[in-house]
Simulated assay, not measured.
Amino acid sequence: MHAFLVIVFMMVIGALIGGVTNVIAVRMLFHPFKTYYIFNKRVPFTPGLIPKRRGEVASKIGQVVEEHLLTESLIKSKLNAPASRSAIEGLL
């Protein structure tokens, strides 16, 4: 019984440490949105990584969508499918 309580206690402590670490990591990635200064010195990790590189992240996501999700051959095959052709002809 004693070993079981030790194992449960270690699991709870591990879960708490992991949860706190994840909260800190998410806050560092997404918050704050603007740079903070103290005595004309920039506070580290402001803005967060995602807000700081918003333009770069947006262009990379657009590039992935263009190259892998919506390729020209995929669009052509979907438009030339019999079901799509009949729907377009019915619409026109």
Rank of each mutant, 00 (worst) to 15 (best):
M1A: 12
M1Q: 12
H2E: 08
H2Q: 11
A3K: 13
A3C: 06
L5E: 09
V6Y: 12
V8L: 15
F9T: 15
M11G: 09
M11A: 05
I13P: 01
I13A: 14
I13Q: 05
G14Y: 04
G14P: 04
L16V: 14
L16F: 13
L16W: 11
I17G: 01
I17P: 02
I17N: 00
G18L: 10
V20R: 10
V20I: 15
T21E: 06
T21R: 08
T21I: 12
V23I: 10
V23S: 08
I24K: 10
A25N: 11
A25E: 07
A25H: 09
R27F: 07
R27G: 07
R27E: 14
M28Q: 09
M28L: 14
L29M: 15
L29T: 03
F30R: 04
F33A: 14
K34N: 09
T35V: 02
Y36K: 09
Y36P: 00
Y36F: 11
Y37G: 06
Y37I: 03
Y37V: 06
Y37K: 08
Y37L: 06
I38T: 08
N40V: 02
N40D: 15
K41W: 05
K41I: 10
R42W: 00
R42A: 08
R42F: 00
R42H: 06
P44R: 01
F45I: 02
F45M: 09
F45Y: 14
T46G: 03
P47T: 11
G48D: 02
L49K: 08
I50Y: 05
I50M: 07
P51F: 00
R53H: 15
R53E: 13
R53Q: 12
R53M: 10
R54S: 07
G55E: 08
G55H: 05
E56M: 13
E56N: 07
V57Q: 02
S59E: 15
S59Y: 14
K60V: 13
K60P: 04
I61P: 05
G62A: 15
Q63P: 03
Q63N: 15
V64W: 10
V65Q: 03
V65E: 10
E67K: 15
E67S: 05
E67V: 00
H68D: 09
H68R: 09
L69W: 09
L70F: 14
T71N: 04
T71M: 04
T71P: 00
E72G: 09
E72T: 07
E72R: 05
S73I: 11
S73W: 03
S73L: 11
I75K: 14
K76V: 01
K76W: 01
K76G: 01
S77R: 03
S77Q: 15
K78R: 15
L79I: 13
A81L: 01
A81Q: 03
A83D: 14
S84E: 01
S86G: 00
I88Q: 04
I88P: 04
E89C: 05
G90R: 06
L91R: 05
L91V: 08
L92N: 07
